[in-house]
Design a binder for these strands. Structure first.
Lengths: 208, 208
DNA sequence: CCGGATCCGTAACGATACTG
DNA sequence: CAGTATCGTTACGGATCCGG
């Protein structure tokens, strides 16, 4: 049978024909932070089912959005063009994170994307410097300059401040439920370097 | 049974929990151009099935994104926040419009959205004025100013130029397959007012 | 006629077992 | 490890029916 498509001459419908099916944009999200192995994808997409992941990957490959490298998958340049759409959707969904009901999965590997969609340029006009966030096993660097943010997964720049914490503390801080001062006092947060820069970065992300 | 959700503490996943199902974002697209009746939605969403449309609308209503008025549906303020995500997805999908395979549906009522996602600020820095596009039964106004575009469905402003054409010609012009000069010569395009402004608006939309 | 609701066949998805 | 194969369940699509 023919694939299920909208058959509309509409840019939105065409985009959804490619990436509108279940799990597809979450696979893209995973690959936006760099190439991943099959089992890494599976680990960050609990519930997807191995057959469906394989189907999605091959569909994305046929669509020219994903390419398989040496034992890994990554986005093509065309696939990377989805970043703006992913960030826009995430900005819409961000307010819903407060409703933390029950058992939910979270991975520190999403931080590079979270930093990007949470960043509010109007709150960071004069912010300048590089912050490295170390959460669990993940390290992300954010470089602020001229009201813009650049992120890098690895140690690309010399950080002005390094922040180390665990996932639970990081989430509580993000939600504004925990004050950095308290976290530091109880030893679950460590700040090495320009402490003022770290504080101002929090405000740039809308953390009260 | 519980609704099918991703159960991830991720802003993208939360957004998709609300609007990630089939047809949902197309319903939102319809309502982005103003309130619509049930049958109007049905007409612009061929293939959706009456039961599914009803389900989507009530789901969106429960999610606080849609409200039903007097015999019509419209977006709530929260629902309108989806515009950025819809436009971002449309920008990604726009290049795919060239692959016009077979029978596809199109409606002039999508023009307000099409004008927005197709607009390229960097090509319209000094563009200034109001253009009214009349295609089939639809009228859209676009006001250019300071490298930005504003659109309105009705006759909100005094247009500097009014362009009248039919859907087929409009699509051919958009695709760059037809030169406005030729269209005008054969009588399928009518330009009343500031002709230079109309030409420059085409370039702002990336039409060669 | 509009705005759905009901019913049913088909396609998509989810979970697990299995294989190179 | 990286997927197929299989199978039960859910979602979707199309048609028909129904109340105001």
């Amino acid at each position: 049978m023919a694939k299920r498509e909208y058959r509309q001459h509409c840019a939105l419908a065409r985009a959804l024909d490619l990436v509108g099916e279940r799990w597809t944009l979450l696979v893209v999200r995973e690959l936006l932070t760099g190439s991943k192995r099959y089992k890494e994808l599976l680990a960050n997409l609990p519930g997807i089912g191995t057959n469906l992941l394989a189907t999605r990957l091959s569909d994305l490959e046929r669509a020219g959005l994903v390419e398989r490298g040496d034992r890994s998958y990554s986005l093509t340049p065309r696939g990377s063009e989805l970043e703006a759409a992913v960030l826009a959707l995430a900005r819409f969904g961000a307010p819903l994170l407060a409703e933390a009901d029950g058992e939910v999965y979270w991975s520190a590997s999403w931080n590079p994307i979270a930093l990007k969609y949470a960043f509010r340029p109007e709150r960071a006009r004069r912010l300048r410097g590089t912050v490295e966030y170390r959460v669990d096993d993940s390290r992300v660097q954010a470089r602020f300059r001229d009201g813009e943010i650049e992120t890098a997964a690895e140690s690309s720049w010399r950080p002005d401040v390094v922040v180390t914490t665990d996932g639970e503390t990081f989430l509580a801080l993000s939600a504004g439920e925990l004050d950095p001062r308290d976290a530091e006092a109880e030893g679950s947060l460590e700040i090495a370097g320009d402490r003022a820069l770290f504080r101002r970065s929090l405000r740039a992300f809308g953390v009260s």
